[in-house]
Write a protein that binds this DNA or RNA. Structure first.
Length: 163
DNA sequence: GTTGAGCGTT
C-alpha cells in the first residue's frame, strides 16, 4: 500500500465514523444523505493520499538522491579524508561518498586566512556505512589524487566511544 | 593562478 495512504487511512476511517455518529445528534434529513456524506469523506480521504504518493514518487525518481541527510536518524561516524585535490569541492566529495552509503555532512578544511583548501576534510556518515566506505574509498583515485580515508580521531574528549 | 604531509570548525 502507498505510504501516505497507509498513514492517513486510520484518520479517514475515524473521521467517517465520527461523521456517521454525528448524524445521531442532528435532526436527520434522511439516511441516504448521511451515507453520501460518509462516502464522500472516505473517497476524499483515499484519493488525496493516493495523489500525494503518486506525485511524491515522481519527485523522488527525478531527484536521484538516495536519502536526505536531514531525515537520517541513527548513529553516525566521522571519517577523515586526506590527500584531496585542492580543486575538489564539498559537493563532489559528497557525491563520491554517497555512492557507498548515507552522507550526513561534508566539511573540507580550509586555511583560515586565505580561504584556500588544505586538501583534507571530514565526512560524517551513517555508522553502518563507515567501514564499507573506508574499504571502498581508501586509496581511491579521485581527480588524479589517491584518497586517504580513515576513521577520524576525536578532538573532543569524553564523547561517544568508537568501535 | 602558488603547496602536498596532515586529523577540525560553528
Amino acid at each position: 500500500m502507498l505510504p501516505t495512504l497507509r498513514a492517513s487511512l486510520p484518520y479517514t476511517l475515524a473521521l467517517a465514523v465520527l461523521a456517521y455518529l454525528g448524524f445521531a445528534f442532528l435532526p436527520v434529513q434522511g439516511f441516504a444523505q448521511e451515507i453520501f456524506v460518509v462516502i464522500g469523506i472516505m473517497l476524499a480521504g483515499i484519493l488525496v493520499p493516493v495523489l500525494v504518493d503518486v506525485k511524491g514518487r515522481a519527485a523522488v525518481t527525478s531527484s536521484a538522491v538516495p536519502l536526505a541527510a536531514s531525515d537520517y536518524k541513527g548513529d553516525t561516524t566521522t571519517l577523515y579524508v586526506g590527500n584531496l585535490p585542492y580543486r575538489a569541492n564539498e559537493d563532489a566529495v559528497k557525491e563520491l561518498f554517497q555512492r557507498f552509503g548515507v552522507v550526513i555532512n561534508v566539511r573540507l578544511m580550509k586555511d583560515r586566512q586565505t580561504g584556500r583548501r588544505r586538501g583534507f576534510g571530514f565526512v560524517e556518515v551513517a555508522a553502518k556505512d563507515g567501514n564499507k566506505m573506508i574499504q571502498k574509498l581508501n586509496d581511491f583515485n579521485f581527480q588524479e589524487r589517491t584518497l586517504k580515508v580513515r576513521e577520524a580521531k576525536e578532538r573532543q574528549d569524553s564523547d561517544d566511544a568508537e568501535e
